[in-house]
Design a protein around this nucleic acid. Sequence first.
DNA 1: GCCAACGTTGGC
DNA 2: GCCAACGTTGGC
Length: 154
Amino acid sequence: MPLQQHWLMKSEPDVFGLDDLQRGGTTWWDGVRNYQARNFMRDNMQVGDAVLFYHSNAKPSGVAGLARISAAATPDASSWNPDSEYFDPKSSPQAPRWWHVQVAYVSHFKRLVPLAELRDIPELADMALLNRSRLSIQPVSPAHYDIICQLGQC
DNA sequence: GCCAACGTTGGC
DNA sequence: GCCAACGTTGGC
């Protein structure tokens, strides 16, 4: 297991953007209801891992800045709260189906790196972001992370 | 707002 | 276990 891993996490800025994370300092990444994304959080993320914070459904969509994992996965209590929009009747405190990690603000890029720009870089062609459009949490290789960081003048 | 991609559900 | 129907994501 490498000391520090790298991830990309998507959020809609109209709902919760990097500005919101900066304001609060940290947040629990709740509401993820995709098994692959859950598995990354629950099984692979470690405190200190670096996160590219991606704005989806935005104008333009792209990588807005950096965050880091500040607490390892715990059960997502919204999953058994009937009043939550994320409620899942198959999840319970005794058998949690969904998990979340805590994410801390690090920095805004000096410039947002738009998706269209990432698509134009041959070295990034096999990024999950560009090929698995529906996956909201995904691992990023150190090389890809460095390229994107430089594009954002981090 | 449209719609393609694709993950999930449920009948069989 | 297959696969059609359905719902959601997310770019444009």
